[in-house]
Design a protein around this nucleic acid. Structure first.
Lengths: 147, 147
DNA sequence: GGCAAGTGGTCAAGTTGCTTGACTATATGG
DNA sequence: CCATATAGTCAAGCAACTTGACCACTTGCC
């Protein structure tokens, strides 16, 4: 495969990923929630039983200070709350509020809508194959912005 | 397709895109260049004949002020230079220097290396199919960070 | 030719979402 | 019970943008 093809693959991957996240974010906002893409990935870690700030930081690939600031934001907007962590007085358990759950469901709906647009172009089977192949090359580890 | 599958597709797409851009950036730095991912996308617009700041801003989906600052950076690091634009004394033509071309080639090599790692997992044909399918769903328009 | 309106670019200041560094409170293992 | 490690926060700094103001030049129009 030529070098220029590799760059083309990169460009199209980024375009697709950016398009999808933007569609999801738009869909979430259209459903009456105020957020940014990072929220969704935080929510997937907070559900279903909550998580500590440090857990969240690891999951999102950022410092615990940044994760703590993100939690501040989520709390201020009513999506999450800090509760004592049973058995360790240093730690706090960050859990979703009812509004946080509603926002999570909205994000999943918006994601399904966005993917539906792709299914209309490629068909259900091809999208599934796409996902499976990407899963085989995607690294484990923290969820991070593409750049 | 279920809602949770849609979220899984999003996560894996972002992971793959992030992985690829990180590999390319690492490869470029390993070849002795100091940059960030946005450079690569700027370079693809500056090559082969140069571009104005406003062109670059449109291509990258940012304000012309931000694009101007990016060009400042590229000039300071020796990758590009501003030259007069023939036929319009307001505009300037931003062109790659020899070092800028070398960095572009390094980025293409690094991209090819990164994709080669994927080819080893999926095989050449599947990667090509992946690219073609992504090309069918990716929007045209500016290249933007995924989030 | 001259003048209003549009376009290309830059300067300056403000914002956002992170980082590093310093610190407190609690836990844990000899 | 004290040294060391861990959870979390506070504060300051920084990178990569944004918005707003502005100048230089071009263009369309009378």
């Amino acid at each position: 495969m030529e070098n220029s093809e590799a760059m083309a693959l990169t460009a199209v991957l980024l375009a697709a990923a950016g398009d999808l996240t933007r569609r999801i974010n738009d869909g979430v906002e259209a459903r009456g929630f105020d957020g940014r893409p990072a929220y969704g990935f935080a929510f997937t870690r907070l559900a279903p039983d909550g998580a500590t700030v440090t857990d969240l930081a690891t999951h999102l690939g950022m410092t615990k200070q940044a994760a703590s600031q993100l939690v501040d934001e989520l709390v201020r907007k009513g999506y999450a709350e800090r509760r004592p962590y049973p058995g360790d007085a240093r730690a706090r358990l960050v859990v979703l509020t009812e509004r946080g759950w509603a926002c999570t469901r909205a994000a999943e709906e918006a994601a399904a809508d966005a993917v539906r647009a792709w299914v209309e172009v490629l068909g259900e089977d091809e999208v599934r194959v796409l996902r499976d192949r990407l899963a085989r090359i995607a690294p484990y580890g923290p969820i991070r912005p593409a750049w």
